[in-house]
């Protein structure tokens, strides 16, 4: 296998979990594998332009996020942005991750990305680097989003 292929294989292996969870959150159930493959293609096409200024993992996530956001636009998916009132209140039993996924799906693209990266245990600085924002802005928004979620679901 050529060196570039080996490097790319390692990149996919190291990031497979994060990328699949991102793809599932930005595409329909029938479509997420298509998005994931598009992300792989964009990573392949852009790998030579990675200049090493950022960490590879944050660069990978940024490529994936930009691809996912474009994918939603092309598929004409609703932007999200309103938290449903009945989140977690339906008669059916809701797995905690199901409720979390519903909450994520109700968010705009950037808020969703913020929480996803926090769920993946990325630091404030890494999240800020991916989004091109300041760490402070990330911290403020993260606190608000978690409060929103906690008030609806985690607190009795």
């Amino acid at each position: 296998m050529p060196t570039s292929d080996v490097r790319f294989q390692r990149l996919l292996d190291d990031n497979q979990g994060r990328l699949e969870r991102l793809a599932r959150q930005y595409a329909d159930p029938a479509d997420w594998q298509d998005l994931l493959q598009d992300i792989h293609v964009q990573l392949w096409l852009s790998l030579d332009s990675f200049d090493g200024r950022a960490q590879l993992s944050t660069w990978v996530y940024r490529v994936a996020l930009n691809t996912a956001i474009s994918h939603r636009r092309k598929r004409r998916m609703p932007p999200g942005g309103e938290v449903p009132d009945n989140l977690g209140d339906s008669g059916a039993t809701h797995d905690s991750l199901d409720v979390l996924r519903e909450f994520l799906a109700s968010l705009g693209s950037i808020d969703r990305a913020l929480l996803l990266m926090d769920l993946e245990d990325m630091t404030r600085e890494q999240i800020a680097d991916v989004l091109g924002l300041s760490s402070g802005a990330v911290a403020v928004r993260m606190t608000r989003l978690k409060q929103q979620f906690s008030q609806r679901y985690l607190e009795p």
Binding site: L12, E20, H40, V41, W44
Partner: peptide, 18 residues
């Protein structure tokens, strides 16, 4: 819980598919 979510294993042909 989120990070322990089961993930689809990468096929052996992932690089070639890409």
């Amino acid at each position: 819980q989120w990070q322990r979510t089961a993930v689809t294993p990468l096929p052996a042909s992932a690089v070639q598919d890409t």
